[in-house]
Design a protein around this nucleic acid. Structure first.
Lengths: 129, 129
DNA sequence: ATGAACCTTCCAGTACACTGGAAGGTCAAG
DNA sequence: CTTGACCTTCCAGTGTACTGGAAGGTTCAT
């Protein structure tokens, strides 16, 4: 399987695949006599795993950690479990922060809608913030 | 007011102030005979405005737009109003996305907690993702 | 006079996940 | 035999808001 075919099959780009290889997310594939990369089918699994990890909000660095544990024969399941638990805590914090911010912005927006345009002089700093 | 004093008063760094000047967020200040920047008190207002804008989740680019409108004598109030309305829409989307992601991660995490370690072989790709 | 604490400019790096483009090699179809 | 679609490497840029550091000038206290 050449890189373009793999990219199509995995719904990504050749640029991205070479990038993943460069950062150690994909192992260096065999090369055809002409120097072209030659991927086995299994790469589709790996890319799918990467996609699933990304959809769970894991960084490529995290996903790489898991992949490299697996590659060296270490079952990464406990690690994955910890990563997910961690991610959940982060998500809760992020959601709480955004909801807090939403309240702030809503209040600001109410003020700005209520502002009398006549009191809005360019010389003064905008009081709506 | 020298740059270090302004930085202290505004609770930021001289690096940040020079950076703000470079991207056009702060006007080039007067210089003392020795070449040192000499800021008027009013810069504290401006920095405070920038801080408030950031707290509302506006980018420095957005804040700069408002500031430059004001600087050229255009009342930016209507613009600020639009920016805030926009920000609100974005926030709602971001919050919805994160809540959706939280559900996905929770489900994944339940699966991983329930997984039998005996079925977790290093050879297989981790099935918890 | 010397050392610390300021200030100046400019260049480059951080994190993240790519993306763009140049310069060149390879291969099948028409 | 040339055109076009592939492939290769390498270097550099995207966006965001800074941050670090080098190399040098200034000011003040001791």
């Amino acid at each position: 399987m050449r890189i373009g075919e793999l990219a199509d099959a995995a719904d990504t780009t050749t640029k991205t695949l070479r990038y993943y290889e460069a950062i150690g997310l994909l192992p260096p594939p065999d090369r055809a006599p002409n120097g072209y990369r030659d991927y086995p089918e299994a790469m589709l699994w790996r890319l799918d795993f990467i996609r699933r990890g990304q959809r769970a909000g894991l960084s490529l660095a995290h996903i790489g950690e898991i992949l490299r544990m697996r590659d060296t024969g270490q079952p990464p399941c406990a690690h994955v479990d910890a990563l997910l638990a961690n991610r959940l805590t982060e998500l809760d914090q992020q959601i709480a922060d955004l909801i807090q911010l939403r309240q702030t912005v809503t209040a600001l927006h109410h003020t700005s809608r209520a502002a009398d345009p006549a009191t809005c002089h360019a010389e003064a700093i905008c009081t709506n913030l």
